[in-house]
Simulated assay, not measured.
Amino acid sequence: MGNLDVGHYGTFPEPNGGEFGRVGVHWLQWQLRGDPASGAQFTGPDCGLCGTDWDVRQKNFG
């Protein structure tokens, strides 16, 4: 689960969807293409989103 506290519309009005768009592309690259660099944004104790403004919670990720 990931949450970025930016309000109801998120960052979608920003160019290319802003931060939500960037993270969404990483998720799709990982899930649909098996891209390990994109997967590293979401998995492990030092994930790419960990330690950022995102509130990240993981369960049963490899």
Rank of each mutant, 00 (worst) to 15 (best):
W27A: 11
P45I: 10
P13Y: 05
T11G: 01
W27M: 11
T43F: 04
N16P: 11
L28W: 12
S38D: 10
K59I: 13
G2I: 03
A37C: 13
Q41N: 11
L32V: 10
P45N: 15
G18C: 09
W54F: 02
G21K: 01
N16T: 09
L28N: 06
A37H: 14
T11V: 05
P13V: 01
G44V: 06
C47Y: 03
G7E: 14
Q31R: 13
E14F: 04
D46G: 07
P45D: 14
R33Q: 14
G39W: 01
F61L: 09
G44D: 13
F12W: 15
G2C: 06
D53E: 09
Q31W: 10
N16R: 08
R57P: 05
R22L: 15
F20Y: 15
S38F: 04
R22M: 10
Q41R: 09
G44A: 06
Q29R: 05
H26F: 10
G62N: 14
G17H: 02
V25P: 02
G62E: 13
T11I: 05
R22F: 13
C47T: 09
T52D: 00
P36V: 12
F20I: 14
W54S: 08
G2A: 07
L49E: 03
Q41P: 04
G62H: 08
D35V: 08
P13W: 04
D46M: 11
Q29L: 07
G21Y: 04
G51P: 02
S38L: 05
V23H: 01
G2T: 05
R57K: 14
G39K: 02
P45A: 12
N3A: 08
N3S: 15
Q31K: 14
K59H: 10
W27P: 00
Q29V: 12
D46H: 12
M1E: 08
A37R: 13
G48D: 00
P45K: 12
W27R: 08
G62F: 08
G10Q: 01
W54L: 07
G18F: 04
W27G: 08
G34D: 11
L32H: 08
L4P: 00
P13E: 02
W30L: 05
N60K: 12
R33V: 11
V25M: 08
E14H: 06
G34R: 06
T43D: 14
L28M: 15
C50T: 10
C47K: 06
G18P: 07
A37Y: 08
G34S: 08
G21A: 02
L4S: 01
W30V: 03
C47G: 12
D55T: 12
F61Y: 15
R22D: 14
P36A: 10
G10E: 00
L28R: 11
V23F: 00
G39D: 07
K59D: 08
E14Y: 10
G17L: 07
E14T: 03
V56L: 00
